[in-house]
Nucleic acid binder design. Structure first.
Lengths: 216, 216
DNA sequence: GTCTATACCGTGATAGAC
DNA sequence: GTCTATCACGGTATAGAC
């Protein structure tokens, strides 16, 4: 209940506190560095389960100091979600997402979505868990649906080109495909130097989604 | 802000209020019928985002009346989660989950898990969204891990029997498989007389998981 | 840029009348 | 079995000193 051990710690002080504290080389927060702390807590406790008190303890500053950097809790949510959405939509503008057969484009988008999800893990995790209670959350859901819609279009195109099995409904398959990709946030935890790991996971996703579990 | 239209409505009164009200044939709540209402609200707003005020409005009775039926908010969560877990663990005791080649048992469990998930949709949805903030939530996560573990065993056995492709890690594949199945709660909405629908979805899950998207 | 102090409201839960 | 009234607490957010 007290806050011993969570008091502000300047990196220069050298005390190895457990708190993530400020970004390296600074002794004060920016909205960006505060966001990183907040998103971590949001994902652990859930957005609604996180109070400003929780955030202040994790950041090592008082509740009121947080309001110096951001307008409030919801602004933190908005910034986090915006970052996740930017990463996802950027995939659709990549060259490989726009040329070649539809099934190859779909495979590319599948792999890259898994990849971005892992690279921006905490932000995408938050995006995927939003429930629609606030305006920000409803905006997030709407944009997410838009992304899904565009991928669904790829799947339909691949079906039209005759590259997909015919006994699977495209809408249903899209949902299951995304379900599989998105579920990565439930268990993937990045390691330092994780590029290899990410590729391994993305490979597995693509293989499972396109070829299935069973030995051919 | 007022509560016009959400006042208690006895079924005998015949007023077609939008509120789910009591279970048919009764004019008072049981813990069971109250649970059905509460779980609906929990899933719409999230557990933490739901207040007793929200519940009371949805049930059409006052906050304090709720405490006549259950001890509090967390008891409702516990009951809901227990119901979901009972349904899932029962699958592992079914005859088809215990005989034949491992890959056939795995296919059976996959199909039935999807089926139970849809049959007990609101309860399983709640189970899958739990974050671990309370004792009840941590218990739920533990039991869920136990279920996943037992299915992971099936997958490993199928691999040992040589029926699974060898370029997929069993642990990773289990997670992706469950991710796909569990994602059903994000979009499936039951219709009256939905047995056909459920079978269609379960079929799609099994096909996608075992054979993949691509035309063979 | 951070703090303490505080306003103000919604929360989960209880007491006791009907 | 349901209600109104009320409680103690914790929630978000602000004011103003340093």
């Amino acid at each position: 209940m007290d806050n011993i051990g969570t008091m502000p710690v300047k990196p220069s002080a050298g005390s190895p506190a457990k708190s993530p504290a400020r970004s390296p080389g600074r002794d004060t927060y920016t909205p960006e560095s505060l966001l990183a702390v907040a998103v971590g807590v949001f994902n652990e406790r859930g957005y609604d389960g996180t109070s400003m008190e929780h955030l202040s303890r994790a950041a090592g500053i008082s509740k009121s100091s947080i309001y110096h950097h951001v307008r409030g809790k919801e602004e933190l949510l908005h910034r986090a979600i915006a970052r996740a959405l930017d990463g996802l939509f950027a995939i659709l503008d990549e060259p490989d997402a726009g040329r070649g057969r539809a099934i190859e484009r779909l495979e590319h988008v599948t792999r890259r979505t898994a990849d971005v999800l892992m690279a921006e893990l905490p932000y995408v995790t938050l995006l995927l868990r939003v429930r629609g209670n606030t305006r920000t959350e409803r905006w997030a859901m709407e944009r997410r649906r838009e992304f899904d819609h565009r991928v669904a279009g790829l799947l339909k195109a691949a079906a039209a080109e005759g590259d997909l099995r015919t006994d699977l409904d495209a809408r249903l398959a899209t949902r299951l495909l995304f379900g599989m990709i998105n579920s990565i946030v439930e268990w993937y935890r990045p390691q330092p130097g994780d590029a290899v790991d990410r590729e391994r996971v993305a490979d597995a996703v693509v293989r499972l989604a396109f070829e299935g579990l069973r030995k051919q």
